[in-house]
Amino acid sequence: MKMKELLLFLSCVLCVSAYGLHGDVHINGCSDFDAEDMYGLDGEEVAYADFNNHMEVYILPPFAEPMIYPGAYKQAVTELKVCRHNLKALSAVMKDYPSNNHAPSAVMIYTRDEVEFGEENTLICHVTGFYPAPVNVSWTKNGQKVTEGSSTNVPYPNKNGPFTQISRLQFTAQLGDIYSCTVQHLALTEPLTKIYSPIGDPGLRTAGVALLHRLWAC
């Protein structure tokens, strides 16, 4: 198997109150042509490095208190250099390493915020339970492929071993539009596609979410 991508991660558990523990994770990954650096809390993405725009981006809903990682982007650039150095070395060593592949156990599509027709929002395609990383996620609107406004984070490991990966698409909800996210993975015999379409009366400014699951036995 040709080694195409290296994922390095650091995970620690922080005690933030007298009543419970929270898991704080920092993951950075790279390939020959791409890279990502992500911070997460309790299984949710909090921030990531945008290497195209040279900045740290914080993924927080409008009502959340700001959570800032000082110097995060500068650190991400430094770690990217280390990652690519290690990738070059490991690619030669692990080119014939046997694989143990698991297809995604669940794919979900939903919106980040409550939907209001004519208002900007974010569609989220949540893929979990796969190994090895990554998956490839693509989006369509009314049957046409879209790339503008889409982003996919670095895969991060679940507690039981497999990975989770999240892709996002910025969109404006309009009645009758149909969106899809399609997931490809080397353990799948064919791509997985999930559908989302806003429904309801625009006067009531409501929407529905098509949420489907597909499970595979390990």
Rank of each mutant, 00 (worst) to 15 (best):
His22Glu: 11
Met94Pro: 01
Val25His: 06
Tyr69Phe: 11
Gly71Thr: 04
Lys74Arg: 08
His54Cys: 03
Leu80Thr: 04
Val57Asn: 02
Tyr48Val: 02
Asp32Met: 13
Gly29Met: 07
Tyr39Ile: 06
Val16His: 12
Glu45Pro: 01
Glu65Pro: 04
Val57Leu: 03
Ser11Ile: 11
Leu41Lys: 04
Ala35Thr: 06
Gly71Ile: 01
Ala92Ile: 15
Glu45Gly: 00
Phe33Ala: 13
Cys12Glu: 09
Phe63Glu: 15
Lys88Glu: 13
Cys30Tyr: 03
Gly20Cys: 12
Phe33Asp: 10
Val16Glu: 14
Leu41Ser: 06
Ala18Gln: 04
Ser31Gly: 15
Arg84Cys: 07
Tyr73Val: 05
Leu80Asp: 02
Val13Phe: 07
His26Asn: 12
Phe33Lys: 13
Glu36Met: 11
Ala89Asn: 10
Leu41Pro: 01
Leu14Gln: 11
Ala92Lys: 12
Met94Lys: 15
Ala49His: 00
Glu45His: 00
Ala89Pro: 03
Phe63Val: 15
Leu60Val: 06
Leu21Gln: 07
Glu45Arg: 00
Pro61Val: 08
Gly23Lys: 14
Val16Ala: 13
Ser17Arg: 02
Tyr58His: 02
Lys74Asp: 04
Asn52Trp: 07
Asn28Pro: 00
Ile27Tyr: 03
Tyr73Arg: 05
Asp42Gln: 09
Met67Ile: 14
Leu90Phe: 13
Leu80Ser: 05
Ala76Val: 09
Val46Glu: 00
Ala89Lys: 15
Asn28Ile: 13
Leu21Asp: 09
Cys30His: 05
Tyr69Lys: 06
Ala49Arg: 01
Tyr73Leu: 10
Ala18Glu: 12
Leu41Asp: 02
Glu45Asn: 01
Phe63Asp: 12
Glu44Leu: 11
Met94Leu: 15
Thr78Pro: 01
Pro61Met: 13
Pro70Phe: 06
Ala18Leu: 15
Asp24Met: 15
Ala72Ile: 01
Asp50Arg: 01
Asn86Thr: 10
Val77His: 03
Leu41Thr: 09
Asn52Ser: 03
Lys74Ala: 11
Gln75Val: 10
Ser91Gln: 15
Val93Ser: 12
His85Cys: 02
His85Leu: 10
Phe51Met: 07
